[in-house]
Design a binder for these strands. Structure first.
Ligand code: FES
Ligand code: FES
Lengths: 151, 151
DNA sequence: CACAATTCCTATCGAATCGATGTAAATTAT
DNA sequence: ATAATTTACATCGATTCGATAGGAATTGTG
């Protein structure tokens, strides 16, 4: 039960953008170097974030990315949906017969637990915004965002 | 973010054992047929459950499995630990330098969220016991446990 | 003892997922 | 024109996951 690298990379990128003035967009190249993340991979993620409307992009010479929303409006639930897909812990109740153990999902023994954990996770994810994340950070890390030692 | 098939299979098996009288142990073969789960795979899982002390096994001719603890004593957290390993959402703070973004984990921007979600998940998992799961089941399914149509 | 039913150990396989890389086209300021 | 960029798509290698297979060890039964 780990979060994917996509999720972390997206989060780090968003946090970086959050702490930058929105004068000029920041290129994927710069982002990847500042965060020491693989360039191509990061741009894939940024494209996904753009499609989801969390980020705006400017193409061409002085192009790059910046936040499309205010930091208070971007929740970790949004990021999760982009990078991890649906929050569906179910495996049962999804078979070709609509079940796995021979029960319908209504009768499923595990469904009550699944519903509970899904709601809990959703609420927790939604409760964290980009803004809150920085404030709640363990040692009250302010801007500037995480820096990188090597290159 | 799905639970593995291992987790569900383990849960179904445990729930079945829970609803059986502890007179004679139930073989892996019977268990797999009643739940229509792959035989070999299920036995792997049962072995793991045994190693974790959730299940006792009897070898030989009339051998099989039965619960090693009372249904109130077996939580979904226990099952989770057996089938899904550690509940460590962290990727960062685990690099060769003990980090990923150049920060130590103490300074990690995401750690507060990670700690939160880890605790929340742990508590939720621990709050569900085998016993409670049946009672809390959507439609108050009692014993007998889930049955199977085909074969 | 011979046999059958079982747990248990380990190896492997195929498919899917994941992180990452590569190629090339479209866009845009200089 | 050129350089820097986003964007789309294809692919690759490693790992994980669900599942299967063979065989050894154990134990009741005849
Ligand atoms: S559909 Fe049978 S246990 Fe969920
Ligand atoms: S170690 Fe840098 S963000 Fe977690």
């Amino acid at each position: 039960m780990k979060f994917s690298a996509r999720f972390e990379y997206a989060l780090l990128a968003l946090l970086y953008l959050k702490c930058e003035p929105d004068e000029s967009p920041i290129s994927g190249r710069v982002l990847s170097e500042k965060l020491s993340l693989p360039y191509r991979f990061l741009e894939q993620i940024l494209t996904d974030l753009k499609k989801a409307g969390l980020v705006r992009s400017v193409r061409g010479y002085h192009g790059g990315y910046r936040l499309a929303l205010e930091p208070e409006e971007i929740s970790l639930y949004d990021v999760f949906r982009v990078t991890e897909g649906k929050l569906e812990p179910y495996n049962c109740g999804q078979g070709e017969n609509g079940d796995r153990c021979g029960q319908s999902y209504n009768m499923c023994v595990i469904s009550s637990f699944y519903d509970d954990i899904k709601d809990t996770m959703t609420n927790l994810l939604k409760s964290y915004t980009l803004d809150k994340l920085c404030q709640a950070s363990r040692n009250m890390v302010k801007s500037p965002p995480p820096r990188v030692a090597n290159i």
